[in-house]
């Protein structure tokens, strides 16, 4: 196996480790990129460019920027609306659905 093929395999393997998106969007990053890097079109890309693609993807998967630019509770649990992100995440994960009454309360009072 050439090093280019190895890089392509590494990229696809890395993409396969990504969790499925919690919300259904018009396009899935994981699926679209797996299809792209598995296709024969990528065979014309130079080894160096493939390496850069792999490094970038690996940095994104390893949360390089999240860990480098750490944010504290000031932004992640904002005092203007401390439950804002918890409510969104609970809804996305399907733990707690917004009811008609809680949605009405959010619209009227803003939190």
């Amino acid at each position: 196996m050439s090093s280019r093929e190895e890089l392509l395999k590494k990229i696809v393997d890395l993409l396969k480790t990504l969790p499925q998106e919690r919300l259904k969007h018009y396009a899935s990053f994981k699926d679209v990129q797996i299809k792209r890097f598995s296709s024969s079109e990528m065979s014309s890309v130079s080894e160096n460019d493939l390496k850069l693609q792999y490094i970038s993807l690996r940095d994104l998967v390893n949360d390089k920027y999240k860990n480098y630019y750490t944010l504290d509770d000031k932004l992640l649990r904002p005092k203007g609306n401390p439950e804002y992100y918890n409510r969104i995440m609970a809804d996305i994960r399907g733990e707690k659905k917004e009811t008609i009454f809680s949605a009405f309360r959010t619209v009227v009072f803003g939190k």
Partner: peptide, 14 residues
């Protein structure tokens, strides 16, 4: 973006 902010880099990147 809010979901990406609260989860990880790859979700925000997507």
């Amino acid at each position: 973006y809010d979901e990406g902010l609260m989860t990880d880099d790859i979700t925000l990147a997507a």
